[in-house]
Computed example of a mutant assay.
Amino acid sequence: MTITLRPGSTVMFAGDSITDSQRLDSEDGLGFGYPLRVAGEWDFRHPDRPVNWLNTGIGGHKVSDLETRWQTDVLDARPDVVSLLVGVNDMGWHTLDPDGRVIPAEEFAAGYDRLLAPLAEAGTELILVEPFLLPIRGTVMAGPGAQIDDAVREEWRADLDPKIQVVRELARRYGAHLLAADGMFAELAAASDPEHWSADGVHPTPAGHAALAAAWLRLVA
């Protein structure tokens, strides 16, 4: 079944930099990534069903960071739908993370569950977006002075896969709609260059954001 967005519904996008997409620099606060594309396409298709779109993503945030601001940034807004994409920063970023700590899947699961529980209790519709990692090969830049190579990506993948399973299990437990982004991008990368969808394997290109938005819109009616 799909989620029905009714006139006046409030949809909240939450997560890290992939959702943030420079939202504070955008006129409407939605950023320049998939939340903006979702909102624009929906409003184009359904001018008779206006929706209140909100984005509270913050770059670099982990599940634990979302927990500290969940009440004020998300719960207090009383959204009808919450779309959550988080997890890529929870895989530690290894050489990019000053403390080098890899968060266990069990800790990730417990924190993620604490985010969802009050929303489920309030009857909020949930869309959980899998964290993802595209199979980019070779050494690329992932920010000022930060390099990612194949060995690092293999470590990331080994750490991320159990966390993807956590998101899938929580989606089943809460009856949430799952956007299987990791699988989607794996299929897209197999059919064309992975770099077409993400230059560093983590942050989507405009085409990658468009793919996320199209998949998101297939979950709503």
Rank of each mutant, 00 (worst) to 15 (best):
40 G>L: 13
37 R>L: 11
48 D>H: 14
29 G>D: 05
25 D>G: 04
28 D>Y: 06
32 F>C: 00
42 W>M: 08
29 G>F: 06
52 N>R: 12
35 P>G: 15
33 G>F: 07
37 R>F: 12
31 G>P: 05
53 W>D: 12
32 F>H: 03
26 S>H: 02
23 R>P: 07
24 L>Q: 07
41 E>Y: 10
33 G>K: 08
47 P>Q: 07
30 L>V: 04
42 W>T: 08
43 D>Q: 10
47 P>C: 10
41 E>K: 10
35 P>Y: 08
25 D>M: 01
31 G>H: 03
43 D>L: 08
35 P>R: 07
51 V>C: 04
36 L>A: 00
47 P>F: 12
41 E>C: 05
32 F>K: 00
43 D>W: 05
34 Y>C: 11
25 D>E: 09
45 R>P: 03
38 V>P: 08
28 D>Q: 10
50 P>M: 05
28 D>V: 05
40 G>S: 12
50 P>H: 00
51 V>E: 03
38 V>I: 13
39 A>R: 12
42 W>P: 04
40 G>N: 15
29 G>S: 07
31 G>S: 02
44 F>N: 12
31 G>L: 02
36 L>Q: 04
44 F>L: 13
45 R>C: 01
25 D>Y: 02
27 E>A: 06
40 G>T: 15
26 S>Y: 03
22 Q>N: 07
41 E>V: 08
52 N>H: 13
50 P>E: 10
23 R>F: 10
32 F>G: 01
40 G>Q: 15
40 G>P: 14
22 Q>M: 09
47 P>N: 09
46 H>A: 01
22 Q>H: 08
46 H>W: 02
38 V>T: 14
30 L>H: 06
32 F>W: 02
30 L>G: 09
25 D>T: 00
26 S>E: 03
26 S>I: 01
23 R>Q: 10
49 R>F: 10
30 L>P: 09
23 R>C: 07
38 V>M: 10
45 R>M: 04
49 R>M: 10
37 R>H: 14
27 E>V: 06
32 F>P: 01
32 F>L: 03
39 A>K: 14
34 Y>M: 12
29 G>E: 08
45 R>H: 06
30 L>F: 04
31 G>A: 01
24 L>G: 05
39 A>D: 05
54 L>R: 14
27 E>T: 08
34 Y>T: 13
39 A>L: 10
40 G>I: 11
46 H>T: 01
48 D>Y: 11
22 Q>L: 08
38 V>F: 10
24 L>K: 02
28 D>W: 04
50 P>G: 00
24 L>N: 05
24 L>H: 03
44 F>Q: 13
29 G>L: 07
25 D>S: 02
50 P>C: 02
48 D>T: 15
24 L>I: 03
33 G>I: 06
42 W>V: 10
37 R>W: 06
49 R>P: 15
45 R>S: 03
28 D>L: 09
34 Y>F: 13
52 N>L: 11
48 D>I: 14
54 L>N: 14
49 R>Y: 11
23 R>D: 13
36 L>K: 00
47 P>W: 11
47 P>R: 11
30 L>R: 04
49 R>Q: 14
26 S>C: 00
28 D>P: 04
54 L>P: 13
49 R>L: 12
28 D>T: 08
52 N>M: 11
45 R>D: 03
42 W>G: 07
29 G>R: 12
